[in-house]
């Protein structure tokens, strides 16, 4: 098992190098000259040159890549071209916000999806099953921003129960912080749970028809134990993988949802970075997203092996 984990991590390292190089290249290939953008109106050639030198835009590309990687490894993501502040500080500020949002959305999604999927699978083609299917369809088709706006209209504008946007840091006011993220987590959980639920349903339908379920019934095992211990335990093996990857996607930042609710998270940082052509920010955000996703994928593989005895013993 330890060997499996180590091997899985070792495979991730070259992937990470390739990704980092691509992110860097993409950046170089973007149209527009950041030095020109920074220099303001009617710049003198000297001013442009100075800016180029300051941000090392005058160096050859491989050199710039190596410098960048070396800096990143030391936790230095460079300075924001716009604000002149260290990108690292922005990351440290934004990541916990997105992490909290992703966690809340994921918990909510699992709480809806797993029981919903089980119930649908226990009574296939019943009204309950159709309700679950409709929910799934709605979940994957209703756009996030639309649902977000509707929620704001209902809970903030009409009822006045929840703040319409913004974020209260968890450390200063935990309850207020959770309150501030309730609506965005519902929005994110809606789509996430829809996918998770339909997979839970089909995985449960699959395991409930297995021979070992019949064996358990023949032993006299009670129905709840058969569903939870025998069927769900096996259905969870693919579900764990899916859920982990979904969590990774949520951690990558919800661009639209954060925008709608004005949450200073990771997704909003990316959007702002792109709009202001702030290369170091975009680079840093995309790189961190890639790293998060790699970690999540490796975790998913490891969890899959932990949940599946057949893999554990290989």
């Amino acid at each position: 098992m330890v060997q499996f984990i180590l091997r899985r991590i070792a495979i991730a390292i070259p992937t990470l190098l390739i990704i980092s190089f691509l992110i860097f290249l993409l950046q170089v290939m973007l149209p527009g000259d950041p030095a020109l953008a920074l220099a303001g109106e009617d710049p003198s050639p000297q001013a442009i040159a100075a800016i180029r030198e300051k941000f090392q835009l005058d160096q050859p590309i491989p050199m710039r890549y190596l410098t960048w990687v070396a800096n990143v490894l030391q936790g230095d993501f460079g300075m924001s071209i716009r604000t002149g502040l260290p990108v690292r500080d922005m990351l440290i500020q934004r990541l916990p916000v997105t992490f909290q949002l992703a966690l809340m959305a994921m918990i909510l999604a699992v709480l809806i999806a797993i029981p919903g999927g089980i119930i649908a699978a226990l009574r296939p083609n019943s009204p309950l099953d159709y309700t679950v299917s409709s929910f799934t369809l709605a979940g994957v088709s209703v756009p996030n921003f639309f649902l977000g706006i509707m929620l704001i209209l209902l809970f903030s504008v009409t009822l006045g129960w929840l703040p319409s946007g913004g974020y209260v840091p968890f450390a200063s006011d935990p309850l207020g912080s959770i309150r501030s993220l309730i609506m965005p987590s519902i929005v994110l959980a809606f789509a996430t749970s829809a996918v998770l639920m339909s997979h839970t349903r089909s995985a449960m339908l699959g395991t409930l028809n297995q021979d070992y379920i019949r064996t358990a019934r023949a032993k006299g095992v009670s129905e709840p134990l058969i569903v939870i211990k025998h069927a769900l335990r096996n259905a969870l093996i693919p579900i764990i993988t899916l859920g982990t990857i979904q969590f990774g996607e949520l951690l990558g930042g919800a661009v639209l949802t954060e925008q709608v609710f004005g949450i200073p998270g990771f997704g909003k940082m990316l959007v702002d970075g792109v709009f202001s052509r702030d290369y170091s920010i975009v680079q840093a955000v995309v790189l961190v997203q890639a790293i998060i996703f790699l970690i999540v994928t490796v975790t998913a593989d490891i969890l899959y092996a932990v949940a599946n005895p057949k893999l554990r013993h290989q």
Partner: peptide, 20 residues
């Protein structure tokens, strides 16, 4: 009664035990 008064062995030993 199942598994106590009357029990059953199936045709498919490969799939009749829970893999988990």
């Amino acid at each position: 009664v199942r598994g106590a008064g009357m029990s059953m062995i199936f045709q498919e030993p490969m799939t009749s035990l829970n893999p988990a």
